[in-house]
Design a protein around this nucleic acid. Structure first.
Lengths: 334, 334
DNA sequence: TACCGCTTGCAAATCGTTTTGCATACGGCC
DNA sequence: GGCCGTATGCAAAACGATTTGCAAGCGGTA
C-alpha cells in the first residue's frame, strides 16, 4: 500500500483524523500527551502530509515564479543572463528559507505553454512599458511584484533598484573627468533606462553641454551596441566618456573603441551598471555599480509574500548602490 | 462568487461534469457538437481547470526541480553559477514547452527547508560521490536523473557530459604543443574530474612523461586555485601547459601566471572546460570546450519526463563536445 | 417481440486534507 | 440533584477535479 495518510496515522494513534490535523496545525487545543503520541507515531510510520490535498483545501500553490521579461539567451550570447541569474539564485535561497519554492519562468512564448504554471505570485524582473507578462499574470489573478519600478504601472508594488541614485553615481563620476559624456541605453522602455536618461539630461544641461544619447535594441546584444558605438565615435570624435548601463552593450563598446583606435580609459572612459562577471572580466575591467542584487532579490521575495499575507510586512533593507571604480574609467595617476 | 468550476460549466452547457471532463481529456467519446458547445462556453465564462484538484486526483506535481549540488555562490564570486544557470535557462525553456514548470532548488541547507518542495522529479547537476542531495530525493521517492554520471551510483540515469571525450580534446591539444602538461582538478569527486584524471594518466604514460596533477577544493574558488598554481609553477618550472577544467580555477591560474612572471600562452599554455563568459572574457581568452549545455539540459528534462512516464522515450541528440581554440593555448603563428 | 451491441451521458466514489458543527464527559456551583 | 461552562474529540462537509460502473436510447437482426 501507498504512503500513509492522515487516516492511517489517526488509526494508529487511536484518534480521529481531525485530532491529528489539529495536533499539527495547532488551530485547536489538543491534549499535550495525545499530541506527543501522534508526533512520535508520525515519525515512526513515516507520515508526511500530502501537499496536493492540503493545497486543494487551503488554496495556495506553495511556490512563486521568477520571470524574465526578456528572452533568456539573446542570439549572440546571454546578455541579461548574469543579472537575472544572480537574482534567481538569491531569490531561490530566500524563498526556500520561507518554506516556498521558486519557479524559473522563461519569457512568454505561446500563451498556453504557461498554462501548467501554478504559483501564488510572481516576481517580474525589470518589466518594460506595457510588458505583456504583467497582463498575463493579472488575467490569472496572480499577485505580482516587480524588481525595478514598472513603467506606466504606478500601482504595482516593487523593489526599487534605485536607478536614479545609480545614474547619479555613474554620471557624476564620468562628468567630473571633464569632456563630453555620452549615453547608450536600451531601446526598450525599462525604468532604469528612463531614469538614467532623465538624470543624464539634467546633468548635461547643468553642465551646459549638449546631450549625446542613443538607444540600442537589447535584442541586438553586444554586436548591435558595438556597431552603434562605432558610428557614434566616428561621427563625434569629441566624446570622451560613455555611460553604458547594459553590461553586454558596454563590452560591445569596448570592441568598438578598439576598432576606431581609441584606448580605454585614455581616449575613452567607460562605465556600466551591473557589476557582474562581464564587467569584472572585461579588458580593461569596467567601472560599475554594486546594486546589491542579493538583497534586492530577498526583498522582492519578502514583499511578495507579505502581499500574499504569508509574511508580516517587515521592510527588508536594501543597501544603497555603490560605485565600484575600475580601470575603464579611472586614469592611472602618475 | 469565485472562479467557475467544472460544475458551473456543466450546468451552463446542460450536461454533467463527467461529460465536461471527457470533452477536455478525450478519454471517452463525446458528441462533437456537445464538445464544441462546451469549449465555447468554457471560453465564454472563463473556465480553467483547477490544477490543485486535478493533481490531488491524478497525482503528479506538474513541476520538476533543478538542483545544484554546490552552494550557489561560493564566497569569492559565483564559480559554478554560469554553468548551472546556463543549464537552468535551457531546462526551463524545455520544461515549459512540455507543459511542466521548473523549480530552482538551492543546495541543501537545513533539511526541513526543502519540505515545501513538491516535484515529480529532479535533475541534479554534476553530483559528487555520496552526494547527500541524491539521498534526499531517494528518501522521498522522487525520481532523479543527473547531468554527468553520478560517481558510485551506476544505476542512476544520467545525461552524459562526455567527459572522456572532453578530456581527450583538451589534453591532446595541449600535449601536441610539446613540453610538460599539468592538470588541476577539483577536490570533490565529480565524474568529470575522475574521467579527466584517468585520461590524463593514460595520455601522460603513453607519452612517457611524468604526471603533475593536483586537486583544489572548489570552495576555495579562484583564490585557492591561484595559490595552488603559484606553488606549482614555482616548484616545477618545466611545466609548459596546464589543463584546468574548472573555469574559475583557470582564471585563478591566469593570475598566478602573472605573479610568477609567465606570459600566457608563450610561457604557459592554458585550457579549461566550460566555455562560458569567464573563458571568453579572460585575458587572454581561454581555450575551452563547447559542451552544448542547452542540448544537455533539454535532454535531461526529456530523460526525466520519460522516466516519469510523461513522455515517450525519444533519445534527444546531444552533439559531441567540440574544442574552441583561443589565445590562451594557441601560439600566434609567425 | 426479444435480444444484442453501440453510443452517449450521468451518478457517485475517490484523492487526502482542513474545518465546522455537534457530542460527550466532567467539574464546579447553586 | 440540576444546570452550566469548559475541555476534548469525532463525524461529516467541503475543496474541484477524474474515473468507474451503470443505464437509457436506438438501430439492427433473428
Amino acid at each position: 500500500m501507498g504512503k500513509p495518510t492522515i487516516a492511517d496515522l489517526a488509526k494508529a494513534a487511536g484518534v480521529s483524523a481531525t485530532t491529528v490535523s489539529h495536533a499539527f496545525s495547532g488551530r485547536r487545543y489538543v491534549d499535550p500527551e495525545t499530541r506527543k503520541r501522534i508526533e512520535a507515531l508520525a515519525e515512526a510510520i513515516g507520515y508526511r502530509p500530502n501537499h496536493r490535498a492540503r493545497r486543494l483545501r487551503t488554496g495556495g500553490a506553495g511556490s512563486i515564479a521568477l520571470v524574465s521579461s526578456m528572452p533568456f539567451a539573446v542570439a549572440a550570447g546571454p546578455s541579461r543572463l548574469g543579472f537575472l541569474m544572480e537574482i534567481a539564485a538569491a531569490a531561490a535561497v530566500t524563498a526556500f528559507s520561507r518554506g516556498i519554492s521558486l519557479c524559473l519562468v522563461p519569457p512568454l512564448g505561446p500563451r498556453d505553454s504557461l498554462d501548467a504554471l501554478e504559483v501564488d505570485g510572481a516576481i517580474v524582473v525589470e518589466p518594460e512599458l506595457d510588458d505583456p507578462v504583467l497582463d498575463f499574470f493579472f488575467d490569472r489573478g496572480v499577485e505580482v511584484v516587480s524588481i525595478g519600478r514598472a513603467p506606466g504601472r504606478d500601482s504595482l508594488p516593487f523593489v526599487d533598484l534605485q536607478s536614479g541614485a545609480t545614474a547619479h553615481l555613474l554620471l557624476d563620476h564620468l562628468l567630473e573627468g571633464g569632456g563630453r559624456v555620452g549615453l547608450i541605453t536600451g531601446l526598450q522602455r525599462r525604468n532604469s533606462y528612463i531614469e538614467m536618461e532623465a538624470v543624464y539630461a539634467e546633468r548635461v544641461a547643468q553642465a551646459g553641454l549638449s546631450a549625446i544619447a542613443i538607444r540600442v535594441d537589447e535584442r541586438g546584444g553586444e554586436q548591435a551596441a558595438a556597431a552603434a558605438a562605432e558610428r557614434l565615435l566616428r561621427d563625434d570624435p569629441t566624446i570622451s566618456a560613455l555611460c553604458v548601463p547594459v553590461d553586454a552593450f558596454a563590452t560591445g563598446v569596448l570592441d568598438a573603441a578598439g576598432i576606431v583606435g581609441r584606448t580605454v580609459p585614455h581616449d575613452l572612459r567607460l562605465a556600466t551598471r551591473y557589476d557582474g562577471m562581464r564587467a569584472r572580466l572585461a579588458t580593461p575591467p569596467l567601472t560599475a555599480v554594486d546594486l546589491h542584487l542579493d538583497q534586492v532579490a530577498a526583498a522582492a521575495v519578502d514583499l511578495l509574500l507579505a502581499r500574499l499575507g504569508q509574511l508580516d510586512p517587515a521592510p527588508t533593507i536594501v543597501s544603497p548602490p555603490s560605485l565600484v571604480l575600475r580601470a575603464s574609467s579611472v586614469l592611472p595617476s602618475r
